[in-house]
């Protein structure tokens, strides 16, 4: 009986949270447009969320691109197709690794910070304080941060892919001696702007929305204690990563799976 009770209670808790999460998302969406009346808030948050994530994105992108080139070369060279290295590197990055890895790094770098910040604001009554000053924390605190992640994610993914291609170029052309002209021209011929680049961008937009939503909701819904905030921060990273990987599969199946 106790096991059954526990099951029921956790299911109820789960659905309650799910409901709160969606209401929170709706409230945020409603508050979004008015934020453009005060673009300074959006700029600040885009800086804190996006610009400050640049270093980790650039460094990781570089290494991922270099590894892709090494691995791709080893396989391609067996078929005498090492000229296609540029295509392999660019396609993997633009379609998959750019959006996905950027989103995973984002969850660790910016998402966790957002959750901890909002959670602590809640724990120290700053959010209640705002409410009592007739300032809606959703519009003043949450919405600008949501804009920040929404705007940053596609750009971070694009930077990741671009730097990754450069890394692939250094290793492929510079180190392994792939023909430079072939590397670039094949890439230009085979990477389709609409099918590959745009689909990657769409993915990263979806990931930006999801990562921002999860991070902000976890903070806003955190139990207002040190332990509660620390748990919420962990949940942000775990849930965002799972959501990104799961959504990536669905989106890939929809986009590329004829």
């Amino acid at each position: 009986m106790n096991g059954l009770q526990w099951l029921g209670a956790s299911a109820l808790g789960f659905f309650r949270r799910l409901g709160r999460g969606h209401l929170f998302f709706l409230d945020t969406l409603v508050a979004l447009p008015a934020n453009w009346l005060r673009p300074r808030l959006i700029v600040q948050q885009t800086y804190a969320i996006g610009v400050l994530s640049m270093i980790i994105i650039v460094v990781s992108g570089l290494f991922v691109g270099m590894v892709l080139a090494l691995q791709g070369y080893n396989t391609l060279v067996d078929f005498g197709a090492e000229e296609s290295l540029g295509v392999v590197v660019a396609l993997s990055l633009v379609r998959e690794l750019g959006p996905v890895v950027a989103a995973l790094l984002f969850a660790g770098r910016a998402g966790s910070a957002l959750t901890a910040e909002i959670g602590l604001m809640k724990a120290t009554e700053q959010l209640s304080g705002m409410e009592m000053m007739a300032v809606n924390p959703i519009s003043r605190v949450i919405a600008p941060r949501f804009w920040g992640s929404f705007l940053s994610m596609p750009l971070l993914a694009a930077v990741f892919s671009a730097v990754g291609v450069l890394g692939g170029y250094f290793v492929g052309v510079g180190l392994l001696g792939v023909d430079e002209g072939a590397f670039w021209s094949q890439m230009r011929d085979k990477v389709d702007f609409h099918d590959d680049v745009m689909n990657g961008v769409i993915k990263s937009i979806v990931f930006g929305v999801v990562a921002g939503w999860i991070a902000l909701f976890e903070g806003y819904d955190a139990v207002p204690t040190s332990e509660g905030v620390s748990r919420a921060t962990t949940r942000t990273v775990v849930h965002t990563s799972l959501a990104v990987l799961g959504l990536d599969f669905i989106l890939t199946a929809l986009m590329f799976g004829e």
Partner: peptide, 13 residues
């Protein structure tokens, strides 16, 4: 039209 002074202060840090 209501001001409230919180016990903890609740200043924006």
């Amino acid at each position: 039209r209501m001001g409230m002074m919180f016990q903890s202060g609740a200043l924006l840090t």
